[in-house]
Nucleic acid binder design. Structure first.
Lengths: 216, 216, 216, 216
DNA sequence: TATGAATGAGACTTCATTCAT
DNA sequence: GATGAATGAAGTCTCATTCAT
């Protein structure tokens, strides 16, 4: 049972009422658009409130400060991405390793394409918002956990810490490469996607053909 | 010997005098320390000037604005990293593919360890400073170009665009994974370094042992 | 028995119900603690309501605004102090002038010691709350009236305006000195109490032993 | 050598230049007028800057925050009062005790009359500005020290701690009574001044006629 | 009557950058 | 060229009070 979209950490008040939940979503939608176009630092809380058609005072009833909006937005993204990746994990047993890797990457790529502001918003979370430096860990941690849980079906017989390390590497590597591909010219973008698949596949394969391929 | 330290882009004038060059370096040193501890947004230009013991007016004679300081700092880092990686490229022909990959990673890892503020400073460049979004490309582009130039000795017979794509993937992947490893507990940090080597080696190997080029 | 605790000026309605009376007292208790620790300006009406476990809407049913809470609190203090001083006035006839002065001061001192937040709360009333500048007069006026009424038994034969002036001087002087003594180190605090007695006694004596009334 | 009017504690920068000193004084003049008419809480820093015809940024270059302006204002008052009272102290030896007391009170009374905003401003310092609760002590401490130094000429043969206690009592008592008299109708105001003289004189006399008049 | 979510004017303060000296 | 005091637009966030439910 995944948390409801309104049940976000760092919020001042849990929006129990339907109207409140809608307000929170409107605030996040407004913040998403503004962060993407103006950047985090270039977006004012009053602008967010105005675009969301919510009084500034109400905004501060839900979010203790500007950074909390970014955090909530990041978590909302993660929730969406997790759901889109769930399918891969569930059908994992039926897939070849290559198909598994390809689906993982295609789904992630589709998510990035469908949510063009993700890049701007999410990267802002790093560096700018010092007190929320944990955002990235918080966000990706969910994906890593999910992936680590589905890996044994693809790569049986490894130790738990192996799955953790592999999932970490995959989530970070795929995320970075696909995310970077967004800013590239179309042809290079496609090449990068292909390279990501190649990288992923051979990395995973190394855990099948060899139990310990000279990693030191 | 690459460009002289004073020939940095984004600077208002070339510090012809020795004193000027020393001032620029003091400013960058101060900025490095402050960005690392307070973040980019949390650091004021006056604070940088004060720590550098340089009048604020003089600072603005060298740098047109705050972002230019970050850019110059990033470039200074890159210059250092390039020099440290040069050895690998030059002796590349004499190394096995595995040794080549290991050296690349070990050198990068050492650089990150030796320059603990790199992480904070460099990540700030992404997202925060909108007008300098190109920093990352600017910075890594040098490394990618260097690496692409050295790859043919390791992987002969590929097309130029192959080398570009592979170099891009390697620089970004290795950079990301090793950079992330810095924030991890010691044991996991070592595991990540090992995984990075495994990932890199199998990726490079795929261009030799397999004709299966192009996984999409 | 003086006015019932619920019959305080500045309140929006008379709490006829027991629950209302209890709520008003809880509000005043909460306000006392918060004013003393955070200051008047630093205390929010919502904080008072929360500490009193009374809905903020209900608080505004009893008090028209924040200042009214301070006024009611000041009056509650005065009521207590009046009762503690009553004993002196009633037995006044039986006391020597020195004993009379001493008792007055000892009782006041004890009151201040027993109600450590009086100082913070009461001083807030001066200056801060412009629209209630009359608080001090309102509050001390009761004490002055009581004292003026009891003075003829100690200093017979003076005009009514003499008693008013003397009572005014005594209430304000004793109040100020003893109040200030609270913030002093223990030994100086005792000395100040002694000085207050000396000052009071010689002042009162001047109306008996000397015909030199009116030093201007 | 008394400190120059510009050398006030709590200021961000000591105004060395003539222009700066003038600005600081203009800020204090503006603050005095506004605090007196609108109260401390009712006065905004922007209003002070506007009335002083000083950019708000410049105001904050001299004063770290609003409270610091109040502190500086209080100290400026004290400096003035000290100077006006100095004459009494210096000619003390030549005066009878009665004349000494009378002059002390007349000078203080004149100061209060000449500086009608003193009352409003100074009382604001108590209670409202928590972090500056020491204002009163800071301010009066100077007067008490001055007075304690001049007392031996009037009341020879006492111990140092006696002079401290007496000076404390006199400064606080006279200050309070005369300050309160300002808000009274004219006739009562005069009566209070007379009572203050009587109180003071008999208190001082008690230290002459008796070495220890039953103060316990 | 009781509740507490909603409101929004406005307060304080910062800081990148300039330019008179 | 060198200096650093001066600038002021603009940002974040608070909180007394109301009123729909």
């Amino acid at each position: 049972m995944p948390e409801s979209p309104g049940t976000l950490a760092g919020m001042r008040r849990q929006p129990a009422q339907a109207r409140s939940r809608e307000r929170v979503n409107r605030i996040l939608d407004a913040a998403e658009a503004l962060f993407a176009s103006q950047g985090y630092a270039g977006t004012t809380t009053n602008a967010i409130a105005a675009r969301a058609a919510v009084p500034i005072g109400s905004l501060y009833q839900f979010f203790p400060d500007k950074a909390a909006i970014l955090l909530a937005l990041a978590l909302r993204y993660t929730e969406t991405l997790r759901q889109e990746l769930t399918a891969v994990g569930e059908s994992a047993a039926a897939l070849s390793l290559a198909d598994y890797a390809n689906q993982l990457i295609d789904n992630t790529d589709r998510f990035f394409s469908d949510h063009p502001s993700y890049r701007a918003v999410f990267m802002e979370a790093q560096g700018t918002v010092r007190e929320l430096e944990a955002i990235e860990e918080t966000v990706d941690a969910h994906l890593i956990r999910d992936l680590a849980a589905s890996l044994p079906r693809q790569l049986p017989g490894l130790a738990p810490e192996d799955y953790d390390a592999i999932a970490f590497v995959l989530v970070k590597t795929i995320g970075t490469l696909l995310w970077l591909s967004l800013g590239q010219p179309q042809s290079f973008r496609q090449r990068l996607t292909a390279e990501t698949k190649r990288l992923t596949l051979h990395y995973l394969n190394s855990y099948i053909s060899t139990e310990n391929a000279g990693a030191g």
